[in-house]
Amino acid sequence: MKSKAAFEHLLSHYRAQKVGLPLKVESGDSIKVAMSLGALDCLYWQALGNGLTNLAKGIGRTIIHSYKYHQIRLPGHPQQGYQVNGYPKMDLKMLLGGAA
């Protein structure tokens, strides 16, 4: 059930969270980072529920990319061991040293 209104609504919230997350990470406030991650996770599931798979994938990539900059993880997300683009599972500590 894709609709332009749902897409635009979720996209605007996603953009706001994506812009705000680095500021919260820089502030060092773990609660604010966790709240932002929770909001992104909620948007991810809403996008999937509305059939907006590509938007959900983008939100998911943003969440995983943010793990390079803080130690907070969503429930069910391992500290290490993501499989990225078919490559073997990669340690997040290794990712910290290289470019995304």
Rank of each mutant, 00 (worst) to 15 (best):
A34D: 01
G81W: 10
G97L: 15
M94G: 07
V25G: 01
T62G: 05
L11M: 02
S3Q: 08
G28F: 11
S66K: 09
R15Q: 03
L21G: 00
T62F: 06
L37R: 02
H77L: 15
T62Q: 10
H9T: 06
I59G: 05
V19K: 01
L11P: 00
P88V: 11
L74Q: 03
Q71E: 09
G51Y: 11
Q46D: 11
G49P: 01
T62E: 09
G51T: 03
E8P: 00
E8N: 06
I64H: 07
Y67T: 07
K32N: 02
Y69T: 12
A16D: 04
D29W: 15
C42P: 00
N54R: 15
A56V: 11
Y14N: 00
I63R: 08
K68P: 02
L40Q: 05
L40P: 05
V25H: 10
E26I: 03
Y14F: 05
R15T: 05
N54I: 14
L10E: 00
Q79T: 12
M1G: 09
L21W: 01
Q80Y: 12
L11I: 01
Q83P: 04
P78A: 14
Y87I: 09
V84D: 12
Y82T: 10
K24S: 06
I63F: 10
L95P: 00
H77Y: 15
P78H: 04
R73V: 10
V84W: 15
K32C: 06
N54H: 15
A100D: 12
I63A: 06
K93W: 09
Y67I: 04
V19W: 02
Q80I: 14
